[in-house]
Amino acid sequence: MPIAGTSHSRRLLASIHDVGPRFEREVDQLVDRLSHHLAGPRFAMLVVPDHWGQAPLAQARAFQAKLRVWASSGVEMFVHGWTHRDDSGSAGFKAKHMTAGEGEFLGLSQNEALRRMTEGRALIEDIIGRPVAGFIAPAWLYGPGARAALGQVGFALAEDHMRVWRPSDGAVLAKGPVVTWASRSPARVASSLAFAALARTALKPLRTLRIAVHPGDTGVPALLDSIDASLAVAVRDRTVGRYTDLLKRN
């Protein structure tokens, strides 16, 4: 695996989405898998404070303890919405059909987005005892209200499917699609497998490659095989980095 090098090194950023007590077993499996490929806990976690209103992190003391251990070992923590569910009733086709109703921040007002971002940040930072790395909306979807709120909360980093940026001034820090997988239907499994296979070659020129995994991936052996293959290719000629590294060279 490449040794951490200069700011000109090509970088791999890996992340585990939907981290919380609802998917504790699956998250543990993904931690083991990524740690094996990346030579340790060198990835980010996207933490959901109360997934679908059914798994409040505030009441899950044992999972809170895991988050503290992971954060202390170097895992970057991002706020990943509040419930990960679109309950605004106004986000329309994109949130309801493309994301199975999980585009939480697509239809929120600025005030409501601000409240959820602020409370999520306070909860997670209180648990891990250190600042979060930033905010990433569920399904990488931001409506106008969410984008406006980002500028008020003071997160250092934000990410959507095509870029990483600095909310304070809008500076784009990394470009290119996230390599991720979908387990919701056979068609989505097949399309994500095809894209991941293509990306192993097509995305080689990118300065920063992002790979994201989800708890649902653990239930589909073909997806796990594809994740293994993508990570194995990526680490051959990339430095395994951190999202906050992007701030140091911009």
Rank of each mutant, 00 (worst) to 15 (best):
W82N: 06
R163G: 03
I136K: 06
V132E: 00
A95K: 13
H80V: 02
F155L: 13
A91T: 14
F105P: 01
W165R: 04
I128Q: 06
I127F: 02
M77S: 04
L150N: 03
D169H: 09
D86S: 12
E119K: 06
V164S: 09
F78Y: 09
D86H: 07
E125W: 02
W140N: 15
A158W: 06
D87K: 12
F93P: 13
R130Y: 00
F105R: 09
E104I: 05
A95P: 12
G154Q: 10
E104D: 07
G120Y: 00
G103I: 12
D126F: 03
A95Q: 10
A100V: 11
R147E: 05
I124L: 13
P167Y: 04
P138Y: 01
I136L: 08
S72I: 01
V79A: 01
A148I: 01
V75W: 04
L106Y: 05
N111H: 15
R147K: 14
Q152L: 15
A71I: 05
S168T: 04
M117S: 11
S72P: 01
R147N: 04
T83G: 03
A171D: 08
I128G: 04
G129L: 03
L150D: 01
R121K: 15
P144W: 09
A100L: 12
G170I: 10
R163A: 15
F155R: 10
E125H: 03
H161I: 13
W82S: 09
S90P: 09
G92N: 13
F155N: 09
M98K: 12
S73T: 00
G107P: 10
T118L: 13
G120I: 02
H80M: 08
L141K: 15
L141R: 15
I127H: 05
H84A: 04
